[in-house]
Design a protein around this nucleic acid. Structure first.
Length: 547
RNA sequence: GCGCCCGUAGCUCAACUGGAAGAGCAGUGGGUUUCUAACCCAUUGGUUGCAGGUUCAAGUCCUGCCGGGCGCGCCA
């Protein structure tokens, strides 16, 4: 079904007759409610070529758009199209607002979602933490952002695969195996030097303790590979468990080991070689990535004949491209941003359009308590983990706090504020609005109201109008967040919607002595509840019926 | 030295691919015999780091500075 704003865009385009790009005809939600429900600034773009003032053009266009709406059967939904300071401002009519409520109540959980033909297919790879220890708070943020981007895009009709790249061979996991073995030996009283750059976290010692408990004291005969495998599997299981607790299961796990044994790494290197993009120098094999915009060429095979990390990564992205996605999205930590150029260069070198590979950096997270920073020392291997935050703060608040900022911004995560169950915690503020509505709906004592077809035109109070207008914005807001691949706007919207509801609630009784008005208000709060639930659902946050 | 992100109210941050400067918190003062006060109302707070440029229009784009963070390996 085509939305109102899309039909308005068509009407506007029809009225303008210009070859301006589609974006120029898009309607935005204006910042200020006095500017109406939708606004557009195309008049400014036409002012130059037409040598007329924007306001003059806006006046013409508003009449033309209104006329077009009438012939298209939209006239009843629009009160007026108002030219103001060059902008076109659309004000929905009471019937238009009533229609929004009807749409919400009819579509229920589907309200705000769209379908695409054909559906955009997309792979999102994120978290991809090494299976060598607990997830960090930064991984947690990536988990939240990636998960909600996936949900947002799915809500807009895209086919999304979420994927975790498992770094299950190489130096890092070997170091975990060595560390585990050393701790195990330590527990037995057999002195064995702890590896330099080993994992010093207490979790390794815990892990060694468990090994001893379950498998006895005779494990030092086992080869290093055995310790690597044991340690890695345990860490991986914990990572999966943490993510699951967070409400996140990945559609696909791709392992580096599998990439190698299946021959895909060799194959990728062969492809580059066949294209004449590999050369030997200083005893190493280099990839001529500068031909594709990189700052310098990169080593793929070191002098010791071992591959660098880039080689399997190239193969991995080739494999992702081969699977036929329209777009690949990678979420990385800020420590990887220097890596973007070379990976994009490799995609281009392999003949894939580099603009189909989108790499976004999710910025750092710092923890604080009541404004005071929580020290995070990685040197001793002791740092606040994602699991600790999750256990202390809970899933809902953790998700919300991770998503409250744009991913470009450093995130200051205040543990005390997130935990606090009070008015300054936005999560509870939103959930409370939902619970309040459920309380009203549960207490309804006059069942014959249900038989009334509500007369939504009774909802004339300013607070009711504002609430309906906020509900109207939901689908458009979702669309914008999905297109930007940025969840943060949804948290802002839901807070605003909850506020609009709370204001309405304190001003007006829903269930009163007036049956007709009560029925209308019941429809209004039911629709509000639905949108709050839908929005929270996309954030992966629960919508409690009681608090 | 080079690259990326950030710089907006006392604090934490928005501003949807240039479009009409905003929230929350903190501060101050108020409001519940009624469907949940985890709520609401009022009010204080701005040279958008600095200087130029492009534009009808710049927090947003370009140039140069200043400040904060991160990265720049034949580590992963």
């Amino acid at each position: 079904m085509v939305s109102l704003e899309e039909r308005l865009s068509q009407a506007l385009r029809h009225s303008v007759r210009s070859d301006l790009p589609d974006a120029a005809f898009r309607w935005d939600v204006p910042k200020d409610a006095t500017f109406g429900d939708l606004s557009n600034a195309v008049s400014f773009k036409l002012a130059g070529p037409r040598k007329q003032s924007p306001q003059r053009i806006a006046e013409e266009l508003s009449a033309a758009v209104m006329a077009r709406c009438r012939t298209q059967g939209l006239g009843g939904w629009i009160a007026r199209v108002e030219p103001k300071a060059g902008f076109l401002n659309v004000f929905l009519s009471q019937e238009g607002l009533a229609q929004v409520l009807r749409d919400i109540l009819r579509q229920g959980r589907r309200f705000g979602t769209r379908r695409q033909h054909p559906a955009l297919s997309l792979n999102i790879e994120f978290v991809s933490a090494n299976p060598t220890g607990p997830l960090s708070v930064a991984h947690g943020r990536q988990a939240a952002v990636g998960d909600v981007i996936a949900r947002l895009l799915r809500s807009q009709g895209a086919r999304v695969t979420t994927e975790f790249y498992l770094n299950d061979e190489g130096r890092q996991v070997e170091m975990l195996g060595r560390s585990l073995r050393a701790r195990y030996a330590e527990l037995l009283g057999v002195p064995e030097p702890f590896p330099e750059d080993g994992y010093q976290g207490a979790y390794v010692t815990d892990s060694a303790g468990r090994l001893r408990k379950t498998q006895g004291d005779g494990l030092l005969d086992k080869p290093l590979e055995w310790f690597i495998e044991e340690g890695m599997q345990e860490q991986l299981a914990r990572i999966r468990q943490d993510l699951e607790q967070f409400g996140l299961t990945f559609d696909q796990w791709t392992s580096q080991r599998w990439l190698r044994t299946s021959g895909r790494i060799d194959q990728a290197l062969e492809t580059l070689k066949a294209k004449g993009l590999l050369y030997d120098s200083d005893g190493a094999t280099w990839f001529a990535s500068t031909k594709f915009g990189d700052d310098k060429d990169r080593v793929l095979r070191k002098r010791d004949r071992e591959l660098t990390y880039l080689a399997p990564d190239i193969a991995y992205h080739q494999w992702k491209f081969q699977r036929g996605y329209d777009q690949l999205l990678n979420l990385w930590g800020p420590d990887h941003h220097g890596y973007i150029q070379r990976l994009k260069a490799s995609a281009a070198a392999l003949g894939f359009p580099a603009d189909r590979l989108i790499i976004r950096i999710v910025q750092l997270v710092t923890l604080s308590r009541q404004g005071k920073p929580v020290p995070m020392s990685k040197r001793e291997g002791e740092f606040v983990t994602f699991r600790e935050v999750l256990d202390e703060v809970g899933v809902d608040a953790t998700r919300f706090f991770y998503l409250m900022r744009t991913m470009d911004s450093h995130l200051e995560f205040d543990l005390e504020l997130a935990k606090r169950q009070s008015q300054d915690n936005p999560v509870y503020y939103i959930q409370y609005a939902h619970a309040r509505i459920c309380s009203i709906l549960g207490k309804e004592r006059l069942p014959w109201w249900r038989k009334l077809r509500p007369d939504l035109h009774l909802l004339q109070a300013p607070e009711e109008q504002l609430l309906m207008r906020a509900l109207f914005q939901y689908p458009l807001m979702l669309q914008v967040c999905a297109a930007a691949m940025e969840p943060h706007g949804l948290t802002v919207y839901l807070r605003k919607l909850a506020e609009t509801f709370h204001v309405f609630y304190t001003q007006h009784r829903v269930i009163s002595e007036q049956p007709a008005l009560s029925a209308a208000r019941l429809a209004l709060v039911q629709a509000t509840r639905q949108v709050l639930a839908n929005g929270l659902g996309i954030l992966g946050i629960s919508a409690p019926t009681r608090m």
